[in-house]
């Protein structure tokens, strides 16, 4: 299956990745090869087959609504690249 450089650029944009111009061809080829393998799925009739998103049947997991262990603000911010006044700092969003 043929995947174009333009398609790779589009998907990379959706995934918030910058792909170097030099790597676009390689990724396009790899994706094409893998998706070609996936073409075999089209030959299987799946009319009326429900999709599975979970391997073992379990219903909703409920529990009592009470407070259990949780991270303190200080601990939650410990790994932040930048933090200030108990908050994560990000680059300016509104110009």
């Amino acid at each position: 299956m043929k995947i174009t450089k333009e398609q790779v650029r589009h998907v990379a944009e959706l995934a918030r990745l910058d792909i170097d111009e030099a790597d676009l061809d390689g990724f396009a080829r790899d994706l094409g090869d893998i998706l070609e393998h996936a073409e075999s799925l089209g030959r299987v009739d799946t009319t009326d087959v429900p999709p599975t998103s979970h391997a073992v049947e379990i219903c909703n997991a409920f529990r009592e609504d009470f407070i259990t262990g949780h991270l303190e603000n200080k601990d939650a911010l410990e790994n932040a690249p930048e933090a200030e006044e108990g908050s994560f700092v990000v680059p300016r969003i509104i110009e």
Binding site: L17, P81, E82, F88, V90, P91, R92
Partner: peptide, 20 residues
Amino acid sequence: DGVKYGFRSREAAGLKDMYK
């Protein structure tokens, strides 16, 4: 995405650029 933990690129111009 460089916000809550882990590596963050230092050369970003704006939020979306920082993510990428």
